[in-house]
Design a protein around this nucleic acid. Structure first.
Lengths: 337, 337
DNA sequence: CTGAAAGCGCTAACAA
DNA sequence: TTGTTAGCGCTTTCAG
């Protein structure tokens, strides 16, 4: 009894029509006499009638419910991204009339997707088991923000490779040739793609990737600090660092300053995420903005299409990023002031 | 047809029992022969049967679905708080077996709470209309993070007053007497309570609240900047500022430094929120941590109780905060180094 | 411990 | 344009 206790029959009685007619006005079926429609509407209002959604769905046989699975302990998937994601998912859900069932999970156990016809995985990292299960159950699913090449599942991700290539191109244009990187987790496609983008971009320009140029972090500032120290203490110090996350970029800046280096005069730093800390760090961070909300919207659209029965083949898409220039990069030939 | 297309009848046939028995094992009814239970479970697995949640709920007449309403454009309700809230709501929902229907809304229109038996409002600010509607419809609702004294609705909020009183006490213990505040929006209970806490604490200690000591901001850094400038440029400059948000506190610090003041040597600053920027600001910020996730958990519990029919009277609770000491405050009698 | 049968509240043919 | 009549897929008395 999701509603109060008013049934459709009572509304029908009050409006002096059949339940069918009430159902019709409820579902905006045009073939209803205007007078009747008005009386029904009035009765609904007066009786505070709210249809029982379960009965509706059962009878109609349709189900526009999607489960949104998000990790309980968002690690790399930062909270500001979650908000963007929610905005995107929410907007699309609204527009496409889909209901969202929220599942905050620790990755263990299976999402209680009882009522859901499909599943939206936000950041599959740590939820692989659940994805497997969904796939095996044949539940239409889509994973957001991660490009799963080999799995027969739809996904919408950010074009990480192109993003980093773009960053390197930007640094090169500023005159940098000694460019190092601090990677994210390399067990996720995101981390791999960002590293790959760096490698490809360097190679394309015949720039040498010295061994110490690639430092393996895990997105956290804590992981980046010692890496930055090692990198910057090296006799063959790079003039620019591209980090796979803003947090790591900030750690690089902090470490550099502690070591007496100036940013951006002695060292250019680029982050990834365009998170709030990018604006608030000691040196406003030049970083990569990601279309978090668009990825989410697109995902809902695709899954909706899948549920409507159009195609059964997985859809895989990538969305573009944007470089946000702030103050952590500098041309190499400028006289350091 | 949320599930594939397997019906309970097919499972029953495969397991050579009645649908009733299948239903029993589905619902963990103990009175089922072990052999039968095993066969049913096997059949379920083999046929990949997933019960139709709508039919279940309709037949059983129960409804443990809560709509979670969150604003699309989270302003004061910062994203890191959203994550905490989701964690809390998710945890409680899991534990209490409630389904969460997510509604990301722009405040206009009414939440499509069709399937929901109750509503959780996260940050009612901007959603007053929707709350009114819910109340009028008699839908059990609870508002989180805002204490609505006069409305007949349950709410769980942070004890803002006590929190700020505690901050003032802390500053006084450090020797401060000239303590100013930058408030948040005063059209929300949160902003009012924080200001009130400040006023009460000052009064209780017979400390004068000079007119310019109370500056009205709106939680954003942008709003605080000019206020901070005015406050610090005043001939009768305070030695400490308590801001109603971390963003504003950071703005105060930045402004102070731009004006040649040192923090905390010349000015102590306390924030509110314990947001990520509190750690990353130029001077690590002493601030108030809020039990965001606990508020959410408690809210779900209370609403659940309400739905289970226990009490009909609104429940109103406040949860305590904690002062997180970092490096933006200093004893007044210390020799400024 | 098990099954037959009667709905849960609504929608959707099908006739009228 | 309207109402009658079957169900949607599951749970739940109530006998057995």
């Amino acid at each position: 009894m999701s509603a109060g206790k008013t049934r459709i029959a009572e509304v029908a009685r009050a409006a002096k029509v059949s339940t069918t007619t009430v159902s019709r006005v409820l579902n905006n079926v045009p073939t209803v006499d205007e007078a009747n429609r008005r009386r029904v509407l009035a009765a609904i209002k007066r009786l505070r009638y709210r249809p029982n959604a379960n009965a509706q769905r059962l009878a109609a046989g349709r189900n526009n419910t999607m489960a949104l699975v998000i990790p309980r302990f968002a690690d790399m998937f930062r909270s500001f991204h979650v908000m963007e994601m929610l905005k995107g998912v929410g907007t699309a859900a609204d527009r496409l009339h889909v209901d969202l069932l929220l599942h905050v999970t620790d990755g263990r156990g299976f999402p209680n997707v009882g009522a859901a016809a499909g599943i939206l995985f936000a950041d599959i990292d740590g939820n692989e088991e659940q994805l497997d299960w969904a796939l095996q159950q044949g539940i239409p699913s889509i994973v957001m923000y991660q490009f799963l090449e080999d799995l027969p599942v739809s996904c919408v991700a950010v074009d990480n490779r192109a993003a980093v290539e773009n960053v390197v191109a930007y640094l090169v244009k500023l005159g940098h040739r000694e460019i190092a990187t601090i990677t994210g987790h390399l067990r996720t496609s995101i981390g791999i793609e960002r590293l790959d983008g760096y490698l490809k971009a360097m190679q394309a320009r015949q720039l040498e990737v010295k061994p110490h140029y690639v430092q393996h972090g895990d997105y956290t500032g804590a992981s980046a600090r010692p890496l930055a120290k090692r990198l910057l203490a090296h006799e063959d110090r790079p003039t620019a660092v591209v980090a796979a996350s803003d947090e790591m970029a900030v750690a690089v800046i902090d470490t550099a300053m502690e070591m007496g280096l100036r940013v951006p005069e002695d060292l250019s730093v680029v982050g990834f995420d365009d998170s709030p800390i990018a604006k608030f760090s000691k040196v406003p961070l030049t970083t990569v903005w990601q279309p978090m909300s668009d990825v989410a919207e697109r995902s809902v659209e695709i899954l909706r299409g899948r549920l409507s029965g159009s195609s059964r083949r997985p859809v895989k898409e990538r969305l573009g990023t944007r470089l946000v220039e702030r103050q952590s990069c500098r041309q190499t030939w400028l006289d350091p002031s």
